[in-house]
Design a protein around this nucleic acid. Structure first.
Lengths: 168, 168
DNA sequence: TATTGTTATACTCTATAACTATA
DNA sequence: TATAGTTATAGAGTATAACAATA
């Protein structure tokens, strides 16, 4: 399942788009397809790095989020909003993390409807170790050219703001 | 499940990374997380646009690929290589497209091992109509700032080449 | 012996709808 | 009446392993 092509299939698709009279959308199509493919490559690296820790990316993200929470705990719906995933995805992730002894649920002291999530000691340790592994194995040298990382942050930040991800 | 935050959660994560002594990896982490989120936003738009046609993005990609094939047909393994997905994913997609009457399987004339995929008339029509819908609804105005689309194509092209996606 | 494709199986994440409990 | 979370259920994509057929 690892195949290196002689030519860039996305550049070829862009040419096809132009040939078929969709020149106005061809460049965007190519950029969007490239984002899809880049995400696929990066996700595969991340999941490979996290596998020894028994974590998926979705569960790692929740663990990392909790490790930065000021109070040490976070309501479920806050986690759902910050990670931009469906509440049922949080329920699912917490179920598995709890079964693994990495997080614990507790009642909110004043609002009986909300459930708080909290890292256990084991969860805090694993968050640190897996973050170190990701930084060393993926983030510290992802393979972007010099200066491109800042460009990406700027470009995708503007896109996400336009898409309504956040104000400000 | 649509929540707009007051602040950018990725920028906040980047600050957290820096505060915890991972400054060398913080920017890349932010860029990669932004790619993940951007992909999620774009995929949701694409799937919404394709839903009326009974297509998912994976199946649309196969349909579009076939519509550009010179000979009108493509071996399964060629499709797997070009779309960079596992052979079983192609089998699965072709199964469903075939059941929907959009593609047909046939034997390769000289190599009995390989299966050719071919668009039916209905498949060719649907490929055109769904492509027009995607171009109108997603690709023609995705929400990137002027000039950023070309930057993205350049940056992600370099990344994919570095990752071994293609030579040249 | 290598390649192509299928099958069976399993595991992700995601989403909708119905429901309980609380505000 | 609205909100928070869970449950059940369904569907998607992806992957591994075993296998059949062909080269």
């Amino acid at each position: 399942m690892d195949t290196s092509l002689s030519r860039d299939p996305i550049a070829e698709a862009q040419r096809n788009w132009e040939e078929h009279g969709w020149g106005d959308a061809a460049a965007s199509m190519a950029a969007i397809t490239a984002i899809m493919r880049t995400q696929q490559i990066l996700l595969a690296r991340i999941e490979t790095t996290l596998k020894p820790f028994g974590l998926t990316f979705a569960r790692y993200e929740l663990l990392a989020l909790l490790s930065f929470a000021r109070k040490g705990s976070l309501p479920m719906n806050k986690a759902s909003a910050l990670l931009q995933v469906h509440p049922t995805s949080i329920t699912n992730a917490v179920d598995r993390l709890e079964r693994a002894g990495l997080v614990e649920r507790s009642r909110h002291p004043t609002d009986g409807r909300t459930t708080l999530i909290e890292l256990t000691a084991a969860g805090r340790t694993l968050a640190k170790r897996s973050t170190a592994a990701l930084n060393a194995g993926v983030f510290s040298a992802p393979g972007f050219d010099a200066g491109d990382v800042d460009q990406l942050i700027r470009i995708l930040g503007a896109f996400r703001r336009n898409a309504g991800d956040f104000q400000d």
